[in-house]
Design a protein around this nucleic acid. Structure first.
Lengths: 214, 214
DNA sequence: CAAATTTAATAAACGGTGTTCAGTTTTATA
DNA sequence: TATAAAACTGAACACCGTTTATTAAATTTG
């Protein structure tokens, strides 16, 4: 028995998983969520479709893996914001960063917070515990708590307040991405108009929060 | 040429359309959006799949028709609220009714405001004008305007304020429906916990709006 | 009424999908 | 080198939305 064989095999296994995910990610960005097929992934990595099932339980597990990768991207976008000491300012910047992320990576946002397929995998395999979501939400809760210590949102429950803020931001992003913002007077550069609406709406939200001091 | 033949034929055509839509709606409620297939609709109405194409351009047109029906349901749910004279109270009740609608008809809500398929049909065939959406939003705008005349949200743009409110409510409903509310401590009756979170979050939003008088 | 014409319906096919499984090929061990 | 184990795949299964050529029915015309 040669030493290190098992180790190498494990490495190969991970490499293959990575190869599959990279192809899936590429197809996902190039052609969109609906256009990812196991067959197209298989073709891209030059293996038979059946091979993929040796590395992933099913398609949803692939989506879940991409979902986790997407969360990595989101966390990275939030990383610099931890440096902002003032909690209310940090909250505002978090909102901006969130919207920025959603509008520049609509497909990824869709995968993270709108599509149900990855969450289905969470529900069936991860004992229904969405670690990434919990962690991200906790960051928001802590920031809200910080704001309250500075005199914002006093008398309002921290959890509810955080949930309220997330709901608003998510709703704004979801509507912006899913083509449901239609009350757009001009039809010149649609995307730019939608971006404007999103920014204006967020500014109004900000203005509202600012009035909630004392 | 016998008179009334053309009329009867037109009636038959509409009846068939209705038959198809009724079956689609039933399948939709019973098995969910993803489980509607033209073949299953065809089987339900006891016609061949190809026949459906004599009455609908493609699957998206069926979705769009269901989408319009769903809007009818939503409007009906909002009907009684027009009687409420006080605009701020009306606004609150509108929010409640909206959430109520979304939680009791999650599939329909999904179709109306989350899924992109019906909107795709709007974009390609209806000159990109989403009449139902525009009308519904205008009702919200008028209510917000009423609130402003009573001293609420002064100095904030009416359109932006309406958009802000819709974003929040939509975000809350979207998260509640799409299984993305996971920071749930107990796992006893999950749906009830989610409903509680939604209600608490909405109450917090209400409380916030109330502080925006004068 | 019979023939011609329009309309309605469909069987069959096309090219796709996710997934399974019986085999084959490759690799590692004894 | 024979054997056991692991990796891989071709082919099938059961679906899907959509199109087309063909048949059956209804209608109009002579």
């Amino acid at each position: 028995m040669i030493m290190g064989v098992k180790e190498r095999k494990e490495r190969d296994k991970l490499e293959m998983r990575d190869k599959i995910l990279k192809s899936a990610h590429k197809l996902f960005l190039e052609k969109g969520f609906d256009q990812i097929s196991l067959r197209s992934i298989a073709e891209a990595i030059e293996y038979s479709p059946a091979t993929i099932y040796l590395y992933f339980k099913d398609k949803n597990e692939i989506f879940h893996a991409l979902h986790q990768q997407g969360f990595g991207m989101l966390n990275q976008a939030f990383q610099p914001l931890t440096l902002i000491a003032n909690p209310f300012e940090r909250l505002n910047e978090m909102g901006k960063a969130y919207i920025q992320f959603a509008t520049t990576n609509p497909e990824v946002y869709d995968l993270l917070f709108i599509r149900t397929e990855p969450m289905q995998h969470v529900a069936t395999c991860m004992d229904d515990h969405w670690t990434e979501g919990d962690r991200a939400f906790e960051v928001l809760v802590q920031t809200v708590k910080g704001c309250q210590q500075e005199g914002y949102f006093v008398g309002l429950d921290t959890q509810n307040m955080a949930m309220m803020i997330w709901s608003f931001i998510h709703g704004l992003c979801a509507l912006g991405i899913s083509k449901h913002i239609s009350h757009v007077k001009e039809a010149r550069d649609k995307q730019m108009v939608i971006d404007d609406i999103m920014n204006n709406t967020y500014r109004t939200f900000q203005a509202m929060l600012e009035r909630l001091k004392n």
